[in-house]
Amino acid sequence: MTYVSHLGLQLVSFFDELGRTVLFLKDILKLGIKLDVSRKSVFEQIWRVTVQSLPTTALAGFFVGAIMAVQFTLQVKEFGALGFLGGLATSGTFREVGPLLIAFMLSGKVGAFTAAELGTMQVTEQIDAIRCLGANPMKEIILPRFIGIVIASFFLLAFGLMLSVGGGVLVGIVFSNISPEEYVRHIPTVVTFPSIAGGLYKCFVFATLLATICTYKGYTTRGGAKGVGRSVVSTSVATMVGIVIADWLTSLTAEAVLMFFIRG
């Protein structure tokens, strides 16, 4: 009985938190539609997120491409189809593994940083002070960060995916003895526009999810230094779980859209 009631409470708390996050996103979008935001603050946030995460994303992207190439080498070698290594590895990276792994990296870096920053502002009453000074904290600190994270994360994810091709090429040369030209030759054959669009669609969804969760968790932090720690941890957990679920949903919807256009 205790276990069941505990599980019930956990479920209620999960859906309560989910509902609050959705309402928080609604408030952000309502403000965002009015474009009532300081462009300078948005550019500052884009710059901060990009500079902060570019090396990590580049490294992650490069190695994701390399890992995929190693895995596919083992498979295609058996069929004597090494010529298709580039196409297959790149397709798999763009459509599935790349956005997922790079988004994980970003959630650890950008998500944790933003949640800690906003959480500290909350527990030191800086957000209350903004409100007391007649300004709207959602407009002043949340919206610029949200837009900044979505835009920067989207481009970082896209940049990471491009670099993954480089990682694949390196593996092709070193482990599979194929030239860079041979590696990239079949990429356009396998990696079609829907694959790229699907990958970019995932990047956008993951970026939005990351921005929503980290700003919400930071903004709703309570309970001093311990509270900030809790927010950072729950941001990391929630973004990773959220990204995995979103990956499944975006794969389903992308496939459905693709099928619709193929079958007419």
Partner: peptide, 18 residues
């Protein structure tokens, strides 16, 4: 928001923008 602009508040722990 307009009404609260006619108020100023000093917080116990200052709440300065660090």
């Amino acid at each position: 928001i307009l009404l609260f602009r006619s108020m100023g508040m000093l917080f116990q722990k200052n709440a300065l923008f660090d």
